[in-house]
Design a protein around this nucleic acid. Structure first.
Lengths: 127, 127
DNA sequence: TTCCATGCAAACAATTTGCAGCAGT
DNA sequence: ACTGCTGCAAATTGTTTGCATGGAA
């Protein structure tokens, strides 16, 4: 656990449930360790994704987002503002049947698209 | 319907269920229209995604894939070889409950990761 | 001393865009 | 004469990598 990784961990904590991009994590991490480099943030995030400490969320037309909350849950992306919201695991049910038996399923990612309350009211608000 | 869009449509048909990248669509489209440019393929694919004629599939660490089959179905990505397989709609069940009522769900994308039969047998075969 | 992580900058891959020309209406 | 689409190349964006350095075991 280097100071840099610590800064990334703290940045992710600071980000709360905002599902930050690597750039945002970088900005937050600099508050803890002003000398940290962007490349280091990428390296640490990737390592943490690989090791399962962090989840990488893919979005269309945009940078990957990261989530330090690795509890089973799914994400909904607002196509108006780009915000990502969490849906708790017990509110999501995914079932897959008739998977060929020689195929080994590893994990699911469910991503839904939505229009969030704000964007519904005030119109698309593309970030 | 320009000759270029036609070439892209034909390329997607030729690709069958291989879920090609834009580069692959470009290569296939050139067989129909050798003068077509890569930028034009991107432009047409994006337009077709926007209009709902084509689905864009996001994968980690790689170029977007495209699918001309817009019937409701989900995809499983083999983390060994990178191939994407289809799972028919009636074999997938997704339910989401307790979505705040002012949030309007638009569509789901379910992506699972797997190890396909080949990769299970012959070991990871990272493309 | 060995090893891995870092800062920095350059390299890279995927995609988008500006622009001038052309095709169809 | 507009309008929208194209080819081409350059630009952008997001991310990775090579390299020399530095710190920890």
């Amino acid at each position: 656990m280097t100071a840099q990784k610590m800064a990334v961990v703290n940045a992710l904590r600071d980000a709360g449930r905002t599902h930050p991009t690597a750039e945002t994590v970088y900005a937050l991490a600099k508050r803890h360790l002003p000398t940290i480099a962007l490349g280091t943030v990428y390296r640490n995030l990737s390592k943490m994704v690989e090791s399962g400490e962090v989840v990488r969320i893919l979005v269309p037309d945009g940078a990957d987002r990261f989530d330090a909350d690795i509890s089973d849950h799914m994400h909904i992306l607002c196509i108006g503002c780009g915000k990502i919201y969490d849906i708790e695991e017990n509110n999501v049910k995914v079932e897959i049947s008739n998977v060929p038996e020689d195929v080994q399923l590893i994990r699911f990612d469910v991503m839904a698209k939505c229009l969030c309350a704000d964007c519904k009211q005030h119109g698309l608000n593309k970030k």
